[in-house]
């Protein structure tokens, strides 16, 4: 049995590598895009006027209230109705990016609002303008505060990427299903999938902890 497993593993190694690559590629791209969108939405939530605040708030609340799977299915199956046709891969990345952007926006708002008012006043008092105050005083402090939660979102996004197997993106989960469909080694290959996900997420967490320590305020 176990020789059978290793034999199967050897035979499917390229498939598995491609699955891992796909998982990391999708997650990384989604987190990157999601973070960029999230920073702008977070800024709108914190400093926007009543209208931008309203729309940013609605965006964040709606996205955070929808399961990632529903988001994925909506973008892949419903958007074509209004002539927006994404490939499965594009739909997967887009939905995960939207998911993480809402998390990033909310955590950045919290981080920025947690910074004592005295910080912006001191920045003003030495003559820094609004954007300088943001770039050099509030953002560096907010990012440090937000880092642990951001790492958490990155991990959630990696785990969420399993769901895009349902629209046919060949990432780790779907690769495993295909392999199992061929050799019926259900337990072994699902366990392997779990192990791979664990290693990816654990590395992200360790990396986050390392950076956190590096940039900690003394």
């Amino acid at each position: 049995m176990s020789t059978g497993f290793f034999n199967e593993l050897w035979v499917s190694k390229m498939m598995i590598f491609r699955g891992i690559y796909m998982c990391i590629f999708v997650s990384f791209t989604a987190i990157l895009i999601g973070t960029i969108i999230g920073v702008f939405v977070g800024l709108a939530l914190t400093y926007g006027n009543i209208f931008t605040r309203f729309f940013a708030r609605a965006y964040v609340d709606i996205i955070r209230g929808i399961p990632v799977l529903v988001l994925i299915l909506t973008i892949y199956f419903v958007l074509p109705v209004i002539q927006i046709n994404f490939t499965a891969l594009q739909a997967g990345i887009t939905s995960l990016a939207i998911f993480s952007s809402a998390q990033v926006a909310e955590m950045l708002r919290g981080g920025l609002q947690n910074i004592p008012k005295g910080q912006t006043e001191a920045a003003k008092a030495v003559g820094l303008g609004f954007s300088q105050t943001f770039i050099f005083v509030t953002l560096p402090q907010a990012l440090r505060q937000v880092l642990p939660t951001w790492v958490n979102t990155a991990v959630e996004t990696v785990k969420g990427s399993t769901l895009i197997s349902l629209i046919g993106v060949v990432e780790i989960t779907l690769v495993m299903q295909q392999i199992i469909g061929r050799n019926f080694l259900t337990m072994q290959f699902y366990a392997l999938a779990g192990l791979i996900y664990f290693l990816i997420c654990y590395s992200i967490e360790r990396g986050g902890k390392y950076v956190e320590k590096k940039v900690a305020i003394k």
Partner: peptide, 20 residues
């Protein structure tokens, strides 16, 4: 306002140094 503010230097009760 930013320019005018730079004419004066202010020291606060709670120091307000930038911790980072």
């Amino acid at each position: 306002v930013t320019k005018d503010r730079a004419l004066t230097g202010m020291v606060f009760q709670s120091f307000n140094l930038f911790p980072h």
